[in-house]
Design a protein around this nucleic acid. Structure first.
Length: 419
RNA sequence: GGGGAGAUGCCUGAGUGGUUAAAAGGGGUGGACUGUAAAUCCAUUGGCUACGCCUACAUAGGUUCGAAUCCUAUUCUCCCCA
């Protein structure tokens, strides 16, 4: 490997693998990390039942952190979700019920359990909800105790604030307070767990620095922050959209097959970057993979898909997904991991109009869309193009395995199982 | 509290009484080309048991043969003055 820039193994890994965007006081942090266990945290929203690949960079950072002998703290924004995240300006989000919130927390915990180890040990991860302390805050006490440490003049200079003001877009007081609450989280975690490091996306830099300073001013605790680059795909789009939906990490939100396919279909230019960030393959191996040319890079994509799926789902899921992909795409057949939909035998006996079946099975969202698909030549039954939307699908269409394969375009397939 | 501007399809954004399911772009989807990639090109993009029907331009009423376009009330948003 190249020269090791830091004493801390953790920092070296972050640097080499592309997790590092900026950090506060490099030397001090390096020293801190190389001389003992450092508890570090990253905050996550819990507005959905699962996190999606957009959070994967953060998750991997915590995983490496633990691997390097430190303690990950996962902070869920249960308290802040209660207020609703204001940065999605248009519609203020619906309030989550307590029940939703608990469900979401459980779902998110499930994801993390795949990546890091929880428990009571020194480097075991813990998961906390900022509702535990934010909810109890007394406005006046809070103002008196922490208000003096925040300078509005400075906050006005923060990128996030400045942009809004310059564009004359509204910035609510609520929103303005968010960064203060976030800073307070850092302080609280410092008190509870001796947390000294906050990590997060580079858009959080300003907020994170606030927390760092609050720690220093109020508790004289030395604290640090590291940000990761904001991830975009090679064509500059946000990561994590596929076939119209978000790429969820939980398997009850997105099938193993679709998850695997997302990684299989990344752009050539992203392969190396993603391998470094989202897998734990050695760097020299990654270098080899990303240097593959032309269609050979597809092999690298398969490895990427396999590795990521293994981590997020399971070894078995990865295998099945790859197997299915091979059968489906390379042999024009079908694999186990394709979504199966049951259709009553009785209906098939009398015949179902093609466009209706495509819609009811969920390949398209309406029968109008199904008709469009068919007239555009994108609908197939057992690899045969459907030419007429009134074509009937019947038991006669069962293949030798007694099922029917429906395809919408080249990539979306569903297996119809008569019951 | 006073005055002004505005709310259009997934998003941005035209339209200001009549072929307007609503320009244009973005995004999505399908096709061609390829490597299950990118770029490019073409098509499509409210719903429906479909050459017709229904629902749509913040909400509720009204004027009119006819409204997204005019009137009234309501809700929300932004701006300015106090």
């Amino acid at each position: 490997m190249t020269e090791q820039q830091y004493n801390s193994n953790f920092l070296n890994i972050l640097k080499e693998r592309g997790f590092m965007y900026q950090m506060s006081d490099e030397k001090a942090l390096d020293k801190e990390l190389s001389s003992g266990i450092v508890p570090a945290y990253i905050g996550f929203d819990c507005t959905a039942r699962s996190l999606h690949v957009g959070s994967l960079v953060q998750i991997m950072m915590l995983r490496w952190l633990q691997k390097c002998g430190h303690k990950p703290i996962i902070l869920l924004g249960g308290g802040t979700s209660k207020v609703g995240d204001p940065s999605g300006k248009d519609k203020s989000r619906e309030m989550l019920t307590m029940e939703d919130l608990e469900n979401n927390k459980a779902g998110i915990r499930k994801v993390f359990a795949k990546y890091i180890k929880f428990g009571d040990g020194e480097t075991d991860a813990v998961m906390v909800d900022n509702d535990d302390w934010l909810n109890k805050l007394q406005y006046l006490d809070f103002l008196r105790d922490y208000g003096p440490h925040f300078s509005v003049n400075r906050m006005m200079n923060f990128e996030s604030v400045k942009i809004r003001l310059e564009r004359e877009q509204p910035l609510t007081f609520l929103e303005f307070n968010y960064m203060i609450l976030q800073a307070y989280d850092f302080l609280e975690l410092g008190r509870r767990y001796g947390c000294k490091l906050q990590m997060g996306g580079s858009d959080q830099w300003g907020n994170m620095i606030n927390g760092l300073e609050l720690n220093r001013r109020v508790d004289s605790r030395s604290a640090h922050v590291i940000t990761s680059p904001l991830l975009t795909t090679a064509d500059g789009k946000k990561m994590g959209k596929s076939e119209g939906g978000a790429v969820w990490l939980n398997d009850d939100m997105l099938s193993d097959h679709d998850f695997w396919q997302y990684w299989r279909n990344v752009q050539d230019a992203d392969v190396g970057k993603f391998l470094r960030l989202f897998t734990e393959l050695p760097l020299d191996e990654i270098a080899k993979l990303e240097s593959l040319e032309g269609s050979e890079i597809n092999e690298a994509k398969k490895i990427l898909a396999g590795e990521v799926t293994k981590l997020a789902r399971s070894e078995d899921s990865a295998k099945k997904a790859q197997d299915t992909a091979q059968k489906t795409f390379e042999q024009n057949g079908m694999g186990d991991a394709l979504t199966k939909v049951e259709v009553s035998r009785a209906e098939l006996t009398s015949g179902i109009l093609a466009f209706k079946l495509f819609a009811s099975v969920g390949l398209v969202s309406s029968s109008s869309e199904a008709r469009r698909l068919i007239s555009g030549g994108g609908a197939k039954v057992n690899n045969e193009k459907v030419t007429n939307d009134k074509q009937e699908i019947t038991l006669n269409d069962l293949d030798k395995d007694g099922v029917i394969k429906l395809s919408a375009g080249k990539k979306k397939h569903i297996i119809v199982v008569p019951v």
